[in-house]
Amino acid sequence: MSQFKLRGRVAARLGDNIDTDLIYPGRFLNITDREKTAEHLFELAYPELRARIRPGDFLVAGKNFGCGSSREQATAAVKYAGVGALIAASFARIFFRNSINLGLPVVVSPEAAGALAEGDEVEVDLIGGSVTRLETGEVFRAAPLDPRAAELLAAGGLVPFLKKKYAGRGWGA
């Protein structure tokens, strides 16, 4: 399977307007170690959810997921908690960009967000723009990732992407 086709199980379904304070409370913002942020994912609102996420699982949400603050820890916490992809009806713009920049696949699909249930096994095609419920074979349309975002995701995020660029140059270039 290519890196743009992912399979996973829906670990949970969340509602509309899940804000960054719900995803990652402000009080933990002074944690700058990305892996450690996962310990506080959904801490105030859905503390039980963290334990349910198995590596590679998907989360499904309604519209405007990640609205609010620009805090990148919200994206990092989702990623390092082991989430393989986020599927939502829509994302708030900074959260969407943070996800691509940290190498967390994000899928915009109002159809899938409305239909998928907890426990569904799903395949997403990021480039083709589809979400398939494997048990029934139902296919939901998704927004295909634009080439620039795909390039960043393929590199594993913005840091590895730029690292390659600067690696060849040496200091003082």
Binding site: S70, E72, R97, G157, V159, L162
Partner: peptide
């Protein structure tokens, strides 16, 4: 507004 990693890209 942008995220921190994106800002690192801008700084570079």
């Amino acid at each position: 507004g942008i995220g921190a990693t994106e800002m690192a890209g801008v700084w570079a």
